[in-house]
């Protein structure tokens, strides 16, 4: 399997080359184009209940697509729904990442996707919901962001504060605490800054340069209200 990011920047695609018999998992709807040798199956990762819990608890799509080169080698082109960068990383079997629900684009067959329950405070305040995706296993993993992806590298004990709506993925060797952005609870709620995560290394944290929620609110003001 080989992958390559085309048109890096705001409107990228990933090209994945599959040898005969190889397959990848992709977010449903991510497939843009593919060779005629590729079969598309809708597969419920983690079984029916797993898919169901993802659907209702993370708002994640019910199905992941499986793209399989069953009739010979071929390639697929994948793209996310929102404008923004794509990164491709290689899971080594021991590194694990937590990925917020919209961040997953595609993963190799060896990548294991788990819905994980968060602790109460993280679920309530963190903004990613009570369930997030945990990526482990081995192979190619493609993540996408809204805006550009920025990688924050943390040495052991090093701290960094991230607005939670800008989180994309973070390694499981990090720890984090939810904190309010501004001092004073009233200020937090009225300033709209909400909550931030104080991450502590070692590990890496991927963040996105745009906040989907704020962008949505910005777009909404231009939509005429029909009566």
């Amino acid at each position: 399997m080989k992958s390559e990011i085309l048109y890096p920047g705001a409107f990228p695609m990933v090209r994945v080359e599959l040898a005969e018999g190889e397959h990848i998992k992709a977010e449903s709807g991510a497939m843009v184009a593919c060779s005629p040798t590729i079969d598309i199956e809708s597969k419920m990762e983690g079984g029916f209940l797993g898919a169901l819990s993802r659907k209702f608890l993370t708002g994640e799509k019910f199905f992941f697509q499986t793209l399989r080169a069953s009739r010979g080698a071929g390639e697929v082109l994948l793209a996310p729904t929102v404008p923004g960068e794509i990164i491709v990383m290689e899971l080594d079997g021991v590194s694990e990442y937590m990925v917020q629900k919209d961040g997953f684009l595609a993963g190799a067959a060896g990548v294991v996707i788990d819905s994980q329950m968060q602790s109460m405070s993280r679920g309530l305040l963190g903004g990613e919901g009570f369930f997030i995706l945990k990526m482990s296993g081995k192979g190619m993993l493609a993540l996408n962001s809204f805006g550009a992806i920025h990688k924050i590298e943390l040495k052991p004990g090093q701290e960094y504060i991230v607005d939670n709506s800008h989180l994309v993925a973070w390694s499981t060797t990090t720890t984090y605490n939810i904190e309010k952005a501004t001092s004073g609870w009233v200020a937090s709620f009225t300033s709209g800054e909400g909550f931030v995560c104080r991450f502590r290394g070692p590990g890496v944290v991927y963040i996105q340069s745009r906040n989907p929620g704020s962008f949505g609110a910005w777009v909404r003001q231009f939509i005429p209200v029909s009566q």
Binding site: V94, S95, E153
Partner: peptide, 19 residues
């Protein structure tokens, strides 16, 4: 040789070196 741990240190990548 399948790694089972991550090692962190100044000369290793921030995501840790598989070992």
């Amino acid at each position: 040789n399948t790694p089972n741990a991550l090692c962190f240190g100044d000369e290793f990548p921030a995501s840790g070196a598989p070992c």
